[in-house]
Structure formats: C-alpha cells, structure tokens
C-alpha cells in the first residue's frame, strides 16, 4: 500500500503539535512544596503554608513574610508586586515563585483569609465563585 505524502505531512504536524504542547506543559508544571522541602526545589514551584509571625517590608520595599508548615519549618517569602490587601489578617498563603539564597522569591501570592464561610455549620462555601 502506498502511503500518501499528505498523510506524512499530517502526521508530522500532529507530532510537532504534541511535542510543542508537551514542552509547554513541562515548562508550566509547578510542583507543590512546603517550607520543609522548598530549599531543595528547583525552578518555579508553588509554596503553601501558614502565616508565621507578622508580615513586613524590607529596605527595597518588598513585602516580606514567613510561611510555616505543620511540622514547624518556616521559610521567608519575598514578594515584589502590587500591594496585598488583608496581608495582616491572612492565616495562610500560596506563593508561586523560586527559591534562591535562603528566601522564596514569589511573583504571585494568593492569601487565604479567615472567613466566616469556613466556619459554616455543616459545609464550607462551594466552588461556585
């Protein structure tokens, strides 16, 4: 059976698309880490933890706070971005960024805030936004 050249081109395109998609996927993969194993992480990771102490600002104006895990390890998070509302009241945070030189440099921070919706009688709020 003779294989049409157009089929070969089609297969090549699909392969190229798959490789492209896979590369993009690998580049975007962000593993979860905690304060205990963040120092060993490479590249972009997602750090989540509970607030440890009071947030503040460093000399360069970056927002600085510490996140701890449930076993007591703690890591300093440095965030240079738009101001975060509720930083003082947040109970925990998810920070996305890289660990370098003893601190976690976040480019994205999402705060978890205490909420009456978490203390609901039976169920917390649903995934509905």
């Amino acid at each position: 059976m003779k294989i049409k050249p157009t089929y070969l081109i089609g297969v090549a395109i699909i392969l190229a698309a798959l490789i492209f998609g896979f590369t993009a996927f690998q580049g975007a993969l962000t593993p979860y880490v905690t304060a205990a194993n963040v120092a060993a992480s490479k590249g972009r990771v997602q750090l989540s933890g509970l607030m440890d102490g009071t947030p503040g600002r460093d000399a360069a104006g970056n927002i600085v706070f510490s996140l701890k895990d449930d076993k007591g390890s703690s890591v300093k998070v440095v965030y240079n971005g738009p101001a975060l509302a509720n930083l003082d009241t947040a109970t925990g945070a998810v920070a996305i960024g890289q660990y370098k030189e003893g601190a976690f440099h976040a480019d994205q921070v999402m705060l978890k805030c205490p909420s009456k919706y978490e203390e609901q009688y039976v169920q917390p709020a649903s995934g509905q936004k």
Partner: peptide
C-alpha cells in the same frame, strides 16, 4: 507523587 499544578501561561 507530590502534587503539581500548571502555571496559567500554559
């Protein structure tokens, strides 16, 4: 293994 998420850039 450990959980992972993808950045929205993906």
């Amino acid at each position: 293994g450990p959980g992972m998420t993808v950045a929205t850039s993906f």
